[in-house]
Amino acid sequence: MRIDIVTCVPSLLDSFFAHSILKRAQQGGFVEVVIHDIRDYSVNKHRTIDDYAFGGGAGMVLQIEPIARCIRKLQSERQYDEVIYLTPDGELMQQRMVNQLSLKGNLILLCGHYKGVDQRVRDLFVTREVSIGDYVLSGGELAAAVLADAIIRLLPGVLNDETSALTDSFQDNLLAPPVYTRPADFEGNKVPEILMSGHEVKIESWRHEQSLQRTKERRPDLLE
C-alpha cells in the first residue's frame, strides 16, 4: 500500500510516521507514506494556496488550483483506490471503514485547513469524506494521521502478532476486555486468577464476558 498525504503543514506529520509501528511498517516495505506540501504546487511565486471566500465571511479557503495540480500529478503516476478528504462533516470513522480501507491498494489523504477547501475540490477529485469525530481541529493533519495509523496497523505483517488487531475494540462490535501484566499482586490488588490458570477456553470465555459487560456499561449503542 502507498498512502499520499496532501497538506499545507507537512512538518506536523513528519514525526508521527518516524516512530514505533508506523516506522517499522515502512522500513519493512509493508507501506509507503509520502507527504506532499500543497505550497509546492502553488500557481504563483509567493506560494499562495488560500484566498478569501466568495460572498464574504471569516476565514480563508484553500484554493482548488494547487490541490488539483498535486492530485493530478499523483494520479498520472499510479492508480488510486480512494481520494479521501478529512473533514468534520464527513462519514464518521469506524473500525468497519478502516477494515475496508486496509484492503485497498493506494490512497490519497487530503488535509483541510482554515475554513476548508474550495467545494470544487470535493466535487471533482474526492471520492470519500471522513470525519474522526464531531469536533473541529485546526486542520486535517491529525485526522489523516489517525486514519493512516488505524489502516497501517491492519496490514499483514505489520504487527508482530497478527491476531492482536483482531482482538481490538470494535472489531466484533464489542469493547476490548481488561488486560493485566506483572506484578500479579500490586499492593493487594490481584490479577484475576482465571488469567493465570493456563486454561485457554475458560480464559477466552472470561474475556468475552468482560467485553460484553464493558460494552453494556460504556457503549450500549454498539450492541443495538
Rank of each mutant, 00 (worst) to 15 (best):
S131I: 05
L62M: 15
V179P: 03
D149G: 08
V126M: 08
M1G: 13
D168A: 13
I152R: 14
I38F: 09
I64H: 04
D40W: 03
A184C: 07
D134N: 06
L101S: 05
D185K: 06
I84A: 02
S164M: 02
D221N: 04
Q63W: 01
H199A: 11
G198K: 00
M60S: 00
H36T: 13
G140F: 07
G57P: 02
M196D: 02
G55D: 11
D149N: 10
L92T: 03
L137F: 03
Y41V: 08
D185A: 06
G198M: 03
S138M: 14
R78N: 06
M93Y: 04
I151A: 04
D50I: 11
I84C: 12
V117A: 03
P177M: 07
F125M: 15
F16N: 00
S197D: 04
I3W: 03
Y180L: 00
D50F: 12
Q213C: 03
D81C: 08
I71Q: 02
E162L: 02
F54T: 09
S15E: 10
D51T: 07
Q79M: 09
L92N: 05
R120V: 10
E129R: 07
L86R: 15
L223E: 01
E82L: 00
L137A: 12
K45T: 08
E200P: 03
F186N: 09
G90A: 12
V34L: 15
N173H: 03
N99A: 04
Q79A: 03
Q210W: 00
K45W: 05
Q94K: 10
S20N: 12
L12F: 11
R69K: 13
Q26F: 14
P66S: 00
S42Q: 04
F30Y: 15
G157K: 15
P156C: 05
V34F: 14
I3D: 07
T163C: 01
L212Q: 00
R122Y: 06
V117P: 05
T7A: 12
K115Q: 15
R24I: 03
D118S: 05
A68C: 04
E32I: 12
Y180N: 04
I35F: 11
V121R: 12
D172L: 03
Y41T: 05
L154V: 01
I5P: 00
L159Y: 14
D51E: 02
G57K: 08
N99I: 09
T127F: 12
P220R: 11
F170K: 07
A68N: 12
I67K: 15
V130I: 15
I35A: 09
Q94C: 00
G29C: 01
V61E: 11
V98I: 14
G57V: 05
S138I: 11
D172R: 02
G90M: 09
R78P: 06
A165E: 04
A145G: 14
Q63K: 02
F125P: 11
D123T: 13
R96L: 03
A148D: 01
G59L: 07
M93G: 10
K216M: 02
Q79H: 14
M60L: 08
I67V: 15
V191Y: 05
L154I: 07
Q94G: 09
G116V: 05
I194N: 04
V136I: 11
G139Y: 14
Q75P: 00
H19I: 10
I64Q: 07
Y85N: 15
R207C: 06
I64M: 06
H36A: 13
P156W: 01
V146A: 10
R182S: 09
V126C: 06
H113P: 08
